[in-house]
């Protein structure tokens, strides 16, 4: 069961990483959905699901050990928060994701920009990057754990790697698709190379970069759960797999709900950031 869910998670998160276009399209749809999610209409479906859950639990359609009642889950949450280290585990996960996201995206944008500006550098990196990209982060984990141990650094490295590639590819693509007209304008205005990058090339690539930032933020949050489940003794991912082993379904659900809510709020914040940075864009608002 646990193998299956890990595998499903890997397939889910790995596939779009290699296809910037798919990321873009997918994200556009998510964008319009989250925008609507802000209105009360978005609350209808969660309420229905909750009602169904409550009903199923009350009438015991499913055995309580497999589907505990919402009340039991709430009690488990309180127990984990007060008597156990839920908050500490949450922080551990957040800190890994935060660091991995910052390192991975900084490297991705930096090297992506360099490769975008210089065809030579792109050719130099090309083969290596495209090969490493196709070895999933989780396949790196066992080796990296041998090197760095089961602590945070191994997980940070693996997740940073998964954040790096969407950013690298989208930054590169974004720079390559800068309109030639704008470059020509920069030449007429005698912009230096540096000014051209700062004022023309990077802003023009920014929509691509923002989309992949948002995508990788979600991806890294999903991956931390897998990475913690596979190695280490703390974090939400560890709690989930421990709860499964001990058949503590209520605790398992607590972790799942927290992961969902945090993932949701990460995405909303990234989306708000994207809207702020790209406020100059006039897009189809649905």
């Amino acid at each position: 069961m646990s193998d299956l869910s890990v595998a499903a998670c890997l397939v889910d998160t790995k596939e779009p990483a290699g296809k910037p276009d798919a990321v873009r399209d997918g994200s556009f749809d998510i964008g319009s959905i989250t925008r609507r999610f802000g209105s009360p209409v978005g609350l209808i479906l969660p309420s229905l699901i909750f009602a169904l859950w409550q009903t199923a639990a009350s009438y015991q359609w499913v055995e309580p050990v497999f589907l505990p009642a919402p009340r039991k889950v709430l009690e488990a949450f309180w127990l984990m928060l007060t008597k156990q280290d839920l908050f500490f585990d949450f922080l551990a996960s957040m800190s890994i994701v935060g660091q991995a996201f910052v390192y991975g995206s900084a490297a991705g944008i930096g090297l992506g920009t360099a490769a975008g500006l210089s065809r030579k550098f792109e050719q130099f990196l090309g083969m290596t990057v495209d090969t490493i990209r196709h070895i999933p982060g989780i396949a790196w984990l066992p080796l990296i754990v041998l090197w760095l141990g089961i602590g945070a650094p191994a997980k940070i490295l693996v997740i940073a790697k998964s954040v790096f590639f969407p950013l690298f590819l989208n930054t590169l693509q974004g720079i390559r698709s800068v309109e030639k007209n704008y470059i020509e304008l920069g030449q007429v205005l005698l912009l230096t190379r540096r000014q051209m990058v700062r004022k023309v090339i990077l802003p023009s690539a920014m929509p691509n970069i923002m989309v992949s930032l948002r995508y990788s933020a979600g991806l890294s949050w999903a991956l931390v759960v897998v990475a913690e489940g596979l190695s280490g003794l703390e974090g939400l991912g560890f709690l989930i797999f421990r709860a499964q082993g001990l058949l503590l379904t209520d605790q398992l659900l607590v972790c799942m709900i927290i992961i969902g809510i945090i993932g949701f709020s990460i995405d909303r914040q990234m989306y708000a950031l994207q809207c702020r940075i790209l406020r100059w864009q006039q897009g189809f608002k649905g």
Binding site: N181, L185, L189, T192, P203, M206, Q282
Partner: peptide, 24 residues
């Protein structure tokens, strides 16, 4: 030069666009 398309950079405000000429 003024081109047929206005060629204002969409990410700069009007005054930033005009100021782009004074970068150097």
């Amino acid at each position: 030069i003024v081109f047929q398309d206005h060629r204002l950079l969409p990410w700069l405000t009007l005054e930033q666009n005009i100021g782009l000429s004074l970068e150097n």
